[in-house]
Computed example of a mutant assay.
Amino acid sequence: MHRKNGAGIFHRHARTSILPANKQSEARTPERRCIVSGEILPRDALIRFVVSPEGQLVFDVAEKLPGRGLWVRADAASLRQAIAKNSFARAARQKIELPEQLLEDVARQLAQRCIDLLGLARKSGAVAFGRAKVETQIKQGRTLLLICATEAGKDGKQTLHRLARALNPAVQSIDWLHSSELGLAFGAENVIHASVTQGRLADQILNAAMRLSAFRGEIHP
C-alpha cells in the first residue's frame, strides 16, 4: 500500500513491521474477516466494533472491549456499506442501534488513538520533536519512525526522509497527521517533525496511523 503525496516518498508496504525479525514472530498480526466484503485481512487493516448489552454498536478503537468483534475494513467506504447493507445486524444476528454520527465518531477516535500513543511515547522518552532534535536522532541511527506533519514543506520532508533511509533502510515514515494533532500529543504548538525510537511503540503508532490514513481515504493500492 502506498500513500500518494507531493513528494511521492512517504509510504509503507503492507504488513511491514519496524520490529526486529526475532520480535516480529512474537507480534505477528492475526487475521479477521470483514463483515462487509467477506475478505480475510490482517487485523491491522480492519477496525473493530462490538455490541453493548443494550444493543448499541460501539467502536472499539483499542480492541479491548469484551464481546464478539465485528470487523470492517478500515476505510469510510466500507463502513458506509456496512451501514447501508445492515451488515452489523446480520453479522451479530440481532437488532443493533447505530450511533447517528458513526463515521465522524470513528474518524475522531482513530485520530485520538494516534495522539494517545504518541503521548505515551513522549512520556516514556521514546520520541523527539523539533527539526534539530529529530535530525540528531536520525544521524545517531536511533530513528525507527519518522513523522512529518501535513504542513511540513516538501523539501524538508525529502531531506529528512533520505537521510533517515540512508542510515537505516528499515525506517518507516508517515506524513498525514496534522500539526495540531502532533501538538496535542506532545503538549506543544507548531510541531512539524517527530522521531520515534522505541520499536514496539513505533510499530503501534505506525499501525494506528495507517488505519487513520486509510479511513480518511488517503491510502491507495
Score class of each variant (00 low, 15 high):
H2F: 15
H2D: 15
R3D: 14
R3V: 15
G8I: 02
I9L: 12
F10V: 08
F10H: 02
A14M: 13
A14K: 14
R15I: 13
T16W: 05
P20D: 12
N22I: 14
R28W: 07
P30F: 11
E31T: 12
C34D: 04
V36T: 06
V36W: 03
G38A: 11
I40K: 15
R48V: 02
R48Q: 05
S52A: 10
S52W: 07
L57A: 08
F59T: 01
D60I: 01
A62L: 12
L70F: 06
A77D: 11
S78M: 05
L79Y: 02
Q81G: 02
Q81S: 09
A82D: 02
A82S: 05
K85W: 13
S87R: 06
S87E: 09
F88R: 09
R93L: 13
E100S: 07
Q101Y: 10
D105S: 15
V106S: 14
Q112D: 08
D116W: 01
D116Y: 02
L118K: 00
G119T: 03
G119M: 03
G119Y: 01
G119P: 01
K123G: 07
A126C: 12
G130S: 14
R131P: 07
A132H: 12
K133S: 05
K133V: 04
G141P: 03
G141V: 06
G141T: 05
G141C: 08
R142Q: 10
T143I: 02
L144Q: 07
L146H: 12
I147Y: 13
A149R: 00
A152L: 01
K154R: 10
K154E: 07
K154L: 09
T159M: 10
T159F: 09
L160D: 01
L160H: 02
L163R: 06
N168S: 12
N168H: 10
N168Q: 11
A170E: 11
V171A: 02
W176K: 04
W176D: 06
W176F: 12
S179F: 04
E181A: 04
L182W: 00
L184Y: 00
F186S: 00
N190Y: 13
V191D: 01
V191Y: 02
I192M: 08
A194V: 13
A194F: 10
S195G: 12
T197I: 14
A202G: 08
I205Q: 01
L206K: 04
N207E: 10
A208G: 06
A209Q: 10
F215D: 05
F215R: 07
F215C: 11
R216A: 13
E218Q: 14
I219D: 09
I219R: 13
